[in-house]
Design a protein around this nucleic acid. Structure first.
Lengths: 218, 218
DNA sequence: GTCTATAGATAGATAGAC
DNA sequence: GTCTATCTATCTATAGAC
């Protein structure tokens, strides 16, 4: 890696760090320059503007998660169950989110505040990742691993939302990423109800169920 | 309500709006004053500083949700099942979040960026709300409505995280708050698995909304 | 309570030397 | 590639009249 590329990366790293901890408007090029040991004006050699720098951080923030998830799911063999694939996807998402730096959290925390221009361009990258999950979930539903009644769009938004929020509370000393992913997956697949059959036990008589758990349907 | 109180409220409303849509540092007292039809200096008659104003918005953002949830759950009779109580709590949380203004979203989107002082004080109010949910979930587990294997702390963070994230994608024209709450509750309690823990999957007509109509983002 | 006026700090961005 | 110097704009906050 050339020195010029390294400098560029150091600016991006500093930006991701400040965007995560201070927010968009409180992230000043002066402080980024100080942290990178260059002068403010030198940033403009690498980036056209503050907006361009921020846009790249946000874009990387999604791409790194998307790539991580895709890679690790594809590494699984063909015969692996969809529940296992989804657990792997959750693990990979959490890993990229929690362990691999500030780019993704910078994205999550600042997306609402960047200019409309940036938001629209970054939205494309977001959509691609959303569609990856949507495909995964649809395949799982077709294969019968997800019940037909489930609204996959809602599931996707609900799941990714919950995972993204973990940047606010995750603590590796309380629960590891793998453990967290496994527990989330179990909760999502088996449900939390105390009235159904015990978690993980396969039932074939799906047409019968304790009515008490659905009595509030109207 | 006195004129002075109304002016104060108009400043708070404007602040909540700007904090939600532009973020902490991009929310300037000048623009708040303009939106409130007063001069910048007049804001200092009502609030000691920008920080004090922001802190009050964030505090209200939690309190309004906490109160809404508490009220609506307490309105339910004693004999109501815990699953129903939790669905009511989810509905109330979403209502306060999505329908009743920008205070809560201002909190969610800016909490990471406010000064340590504010964050620590606001954290107390947050904790109180978290404890309310923890109590509710513990009672449900004791009553047998939530399975013993469930990590209630994880469930609480997962659930509230997913709900809070809905500010990013909720669209009342796609799915109403009540419908959304009901569907979330069903998914959480019954699980999404197509194979096991079958409680509830007898009703395949529960989710009427085609997932494709849910927007990825706004 | 609301105003005018302004102090004092800091922001993004540019010009041009080296 | 990196620098110094600086322009222009905007910010929070204060002083003091009315």
């Amino acid at each position: 890696m050339k020195k010029s590329e390294r400098t560029r990366k150091r600016i991006l790293d500093a930006a991701a760090h400040w965007l995560t901890h201070k927010g968009l408007a409180a992230t000043s090029l002066r402080e980024l320059a100080e942290e990178t040991n260059i002068r403010t004006a030198s940033i403009y050699y690498y980036f056209e503007s503050k907006d361009a720098l921020v846009e790249e951080v946000l874009r990387i923030g999604i791409e790194v998660v998307h790539q991580s998830v895709k890679e690790r799911v594809e590494m699984l063999g063909e015969e692996v169950s969809f529940q296992q694939r989804i657990e792997t996807a959750i693990t990979a998402h959490l890993y990229a989110l929690l362990m691999h730096g500030n780019y993704t959290s910078a994205h999550i925390l600042n997306y609402s505040f960047v200019s409309l221009d940036i938001r629209q361009r970054v939205l494309k990258v977001r959509r691609e990742y959303g569609e990856y999950w949507q495909d995964l979930l649809e395949q799982a539903q077709k294969a019968g691993d997800i019940a037909p009644y489930v609204d996959l769009g809602l599931l996707r938004l609900f799941l990714i939302g919950a995972l993204n929020w973990s940047v606010e509370w995750f603590d590796a000393e309380v629960k590891s990423v793998e453990r967290l992913a496994k527990d989330c997956c179990k909760m999502i697949f088996n449900g939390i109800s105390g009235h159904s059959t015990s978690a993980g036990v396969t039932r074939h008589d799906v047409l019968t169920c304790p009515s008490s758990t659905i009595t509030h349907d109207r």
